[in-house]
Amino acid sequence: MKNYIKKTTGLLLIGLLAFGLSNTVYAQTTNTKQNLQVDDYNSRYTPQGRKQAGKRGTYTKDTHVWVYTSAFAKRFGMPEEWIDDGLKGAEALAYRLDLDVYGTKCGYFSEVENCRPSTACVVDMYIDDGVDLPWNTEARYGSMYGRKSKAFLRSQYPNDKPAHLYRGAQRGQQYKLGLDSTGIVFGKNDKWRLGAYYILEYDRDIYKNLDYLSGSVICRTFGKERGVKINIDKPVFREDGSVNHKGKRLAHQVKIPNSFMQRIEAYDKTQYEPNSLFNAFKKRLSTTTKSNQSK
């Protein structure tokens, strides 16, 4: 009888251990599957989201200000807080301060060794490829990013010129990357102009049915305006190949929500203004004034 009880007890213990182990394995497997399934924006690029998803290691910090449609947010797993279906003509926009685009320049304030990165304020646009944009090239991709070394090349041979000069001659004086005529307008009836949208990179069909444009805008001034739109025009060329701006026709327009512009203005105050040339000038002027007063 005692042996029977011992055997029964042993079997029960083994059963309980096996049951507990199977539950643990099941729970771990379930959690692993759940973690693998979570692969949206928050789980990739936010500290809290990564912790909840059980992700470790380094990750890329997103420094952009975003706005996008509901469909774009669903497709790419983006946070709901930046959805604004008031955005028209584009699926998404992303704004950032870029200190790398134009490289580092020196010689400020008459000092040859006074160097600082050139600031660029960039707007990336994601546009449905069903829009018939007036591309000036058949190439799917073009970029001015990551080509820093070529700026330091100057051929010592008289007829050895960079290729972009020949391309410019072929397409006219107004040759530009991807699109020939782009600009920014704002105000009632688009009365006021805010300079050009200078294209730095494009990728036609970056995702299925989605084109990508990246271009620079005027820092600080851009974020202060409301009712802003980015125009993409179909250019009319003169005989010499230059663009006749009076004859151009609007091909596509991106209407930017004011809520996005407000967030850009707040972003510029913390990111652009401390790095601006104007701020550097004020600091230098203040230092010079104090130095003169102490003499």
Rank of each mutant, 00 (worst) to 15 (best):
N292E: 14
A139Q: 09
A251W: 02
A266N: 05
V122D: 03
A53Y: 02
K88Q: 14
K150H: 06
E138D: 12
A18T: 13
S22A: 14
D40L: 06
G172L: 01
N258V: 04
K290H: 15
S291M: 12
G77M: 01
T9G: 05
M261R: 00
Y157G: 08
K255I: 08
R226P: 03
V217C: 05
E239K: 09
E273V: 06
I127S: 02
R226T: 15
Y68K: 06
K255Y: 07
V122F: 07
G142R: 03
K61G: 11
T270D: 11
K295P: 00
V185Y: 06
F152I: 01
T8E: 09
L250H: 12
F278T: 14
T119K: 07
T270Y: 01
R56A: 13
T182M: 02
T30I: 10
I199Q: 04
G146H: 04
T289P: 05
P257Y: 08
G130N: 07
D203F: 04
A73Y: 01
Q173A: 12
D160A: 11
F19T: 15
Y166K: 08
A151K: 08
N258A: 04
F109S: 13
R154L: 15
K290G: 13
E225A: 10
D85Q: 09
G247R: 08
V228H: 00
L99N: 15
G187P: 12
V122Q: 07
N159W: 13
N258C: 05
Y68V: 11
V38L: 10
N136Q: 03
W135A: 02
E113K: 08
R44I: 00
G10Q: 06
Q170A: 04
T270E: 13
T69Q: 04
Y45G: 01
T221G: 02
E138Q: 09
T287I: 14
T30N: 09
S276C: 11
G142A: 11
Q28T: 15
D132I: 11
K176A: 01
L177T: 02
D160Y: 11
D40S: 05
F278A: 13
L165A: 01
I206V: 06
P79G: 00
L210F: 08
Q174A: 08
F281G: 03
D40Q: 05
I14P: 08
T69W: 03
H252L: 05
E80S: 10
L213M: 06
K148Y: 02
Y207A: 07
K248H: 07
D39T: 02
